[in-house]
Design a binder for these strands. Structure first.
Lengths: 165, 165
DNA sequence: TAGTAATTAGACCAATTGGACGAAAAAAAA
DNA sequence: TTTTTTTTCGTCCAATTGGTCTAATTACTA
């Protein structure tokens, strides 16, 4: 009956690519027309996969927040080496991803954030990586230090504080 | 000749209040009409003070980024106490202020950020406070840890990592 | 009181927005 | 081939956008 396309897989692919546009332009700065053009399809086709703009945005944040993997850690390597690799990996998209996160959390109060499934899933999957690298006890502290280093570096526009390889 | 109003002081007051609206709604999500209504004046009046939307936004970021003072530090108190007070103070508006910063930096590359006067002025004024609290040598590290703690706490929706009073 | 300049209000404009809709095109099943 | 269902396209709409312009209002000076 249908065309060959795997609807779900195609949706995820679109959402993943659309995430870049959202984080580059912000939620309100992104129009369905423009993101459709960016993805190379018509507005109607985009609406076929995502009934509303918010549906698309939520799919995007899910894709971004999910795309992180505890297999990243190299058990052979030292903590230093692992943190340096992780830092380099995260630095690439830190600005755009944080912009997306702040857009997503905008207007939510702490209670709502704590209850937000996507956000909590995301940060827990980050945490797992730090537990694997630095152990349960020091994980939170190391995570805060690395995020903070990236944040301050981002605002400086320089590599200064974050570990690096 | 004019009405009594001090044009410059009035502008700054408007910008300071408008900053809240911008960080709550994002740049593209803020319309001149709505922010004018929020400020309690007409759109034309707002345009009288800020010729374009971008002028208003820049004035807002300047107000927010400038509003930080090295006199915050209590030389009598311990480092712990100073950091706890600073954390509590920054936690209040951390989400909205970071949202504004990320909106401001959106699309800029590291070189442009490093060359951006407002951003560099802002982070240096932060840094001064940390130098006063923890000394020149440890200032950057402590700053990164505190920012990171606030960031992770914000994403958790809980007080967990940041120092607190 | 009359004059003058800063301030405000409201109508107006072209462009863009999110979304709805019906019809065309594509590809599988019969 | 014919049917059926998914995917795509282009058009249309009311609402909102940033910004301009003219007219009214204000509060000071003379």
């Amino acid at each position: 009956m249908p065309k060959i396309i795997d609807h779900k897989a195609h949706s995820q692919d679109l959402a993943q690519r659309a995430a870049k546009y959202f984080s580059d332009h912000g939620y309100a700065g992104t129009s369905m027309r423009k993101v459709a053009a960016y993805l190379g399809l018509s507005k109607s086709a985009l609406y076929h996969y995502f009934p509303t703009k918010e549906d698309l945005f939520l799919a995007c944040t899910k894709e971004v927040m999910a795309g992180f993997d505890a297999e990243f850690v190299d058990l052979e390597a030292s903590e230093e080496e692992n943190l340096a690799r992780l830092t380099d990996f995260m630095r690439k998209d830190f600005g755009t991803e944080m912009a997306l996160v702040f857009d997503y959390l905008r207007g939510k109060n702490p209670t709502e954030i704590a209850a937000d499934e996507a956000m909590q899933l995301s940060i827990q999957s980050y945490r797992k990586v730090f537990v694997a690298i630095s152990g349960e006890e020091r994980a939170d502290d190391v995570m805060a230090r690395l995020f903070g280093g990236l944040l301050v570096d981002y605002m400086y526009g320089k590599r200064l504080l974050a570990y690096s390889g």
